[in-house]
Design a binder for these strands. Structure first.
Lengths: 194, 194
DNA sequence: GACATTTCAGACCGATCGTTTTAAAAACTT
DNA sequence: AAGTTTTTAAAACGATCGGTCTGAAATGTC
């Protein structure tokens, strides 16, 4: 055998993901990644092949560590409007928190001209899953009568995701968290009327 | 006197703004700017001082050439819901167009960690003006009875701007322009009910 | 303790970054 | 046409980019 690694792969991905999340793919340099993760360039390239390779794994890591948790909220049985409400409550908590830094997926899509196709494809694929979870909640809400029979779950999901994106770009409203909550209530109530 | 400039300042800003708009501040290099604008580095630095200085002027240029037009839509008398509808109609036209590339302001805010404070401050200042135009339309709509008396123009503006941001990040919906228009109608009708 | 293996620290690679400098070409004034 | 001024084109600046390589230190096996 040989000398054991002095780093935990998961911890490295944690740090790297945080950095990409804050500064974007193109805005994060190898030197910064080396400094933040603690391992040296040689090990970095041996483990991940390239900056693009590392980023790709960070996207997957972000999904596992961050988005999965949100998906759990959306898939908790029984499905219905309660999932949607819990989801947005969680998001507003994040948006108003001290360490808000938008969303890695959103940032990456916005700088897509500078990012390799593979990572973008992964994001698109994963976003579909996200979207389906929303639709499933709204379909259940229609079945249970929480939403009117004529409500269109796919359309309303598009509506909710647009609003979510707005929140993730804008961050905490000037008037504070209360305003964000008011906004959320307005949105959720509007989908049962429209 | 001396040799006259071979370039028009306005044309230079046009090209530079397009480039920043597409690739962001940090993602656009001096060499690319030189190639796109046609003038050389020396003239570039003499005219704008630095990349940051050029970007600052591009933000102002973008406001004059792009945002002003939108502001005109929002300030055309008589103020009311018609302005809001016309505004979103215009935005959806852009979002579904071939050369959609989000919004320079939004992209810059998203990459704010990599942008100098001066440009960010300018954007924030100008966004306030934008916001006020929205509020004025909604206030007029409340006065004229287009919106219920209890409607809150400031709150509804926040709502509309969140949706607009979502549109500018998402771009054209998968299902096409019709879906975007449906979305717009839903949003606009929801503010008179909520 | 010698040997094999692998991580580690850091020098090094060419390319490009934003920026400055140099020098020749061009257009104005007199 | 001489002289002045400014634009040009291009070379060069140090710094940093993503990426590679070398050699020593550290850990395992035998």
């Amino acid at each position: 055998m040989s000398r054991p690694k002095a780093y935990k792969r998961d911890k490295v991905l944690d740090s790297a993901t945080q950095l990409f999340w804050q500064k974007g793919y193109h805005g994060t340099s190898l030197s910064e990644l080396v400094a933040a993760t603690g391992l040296n360039k040689h090990s970095m390239y041996k483990e991940f092949g390239s900056k693009a390779g590392l980023f790709d794994e960070c996207i997957a890591h972000y999904w596992r560590k961050i988005v999965r948790e949100l998906l759990d909220i959306l898939t908790e049985e029984p499905l219905g409007m309660a999932n949607i409400r819990a989801f947005f409550k969680n998001r507003i908590e994040y948006i108003c928190s001290e360490d808000f830094k938008s969303c890695l997926f959103v940032k990456t899509i916005i700088e897509k001209e500078l990012v390799e196709a593979k990572a973008l494809e992964q994001i698109r694929r994963r976003n579909k899953i996200y979207e389906k979870a929303f639709i499933a909640c709204l379909e259940a809400a229609v079945r249970s009568g929480e939403l009117p029979k004529k409500a269109d779950p796919e359309f309303l999901t598009l509506y909710l995701l647009h609003f979510l994106l707005g929140l993730l770009v804008m961050g905490k409203p000037e008037k504070g968290k209360g305003e964000a909550e008011k906004l959320m209530k307005f949105i959720i109530s509007s989908i049962s009327k429209g």
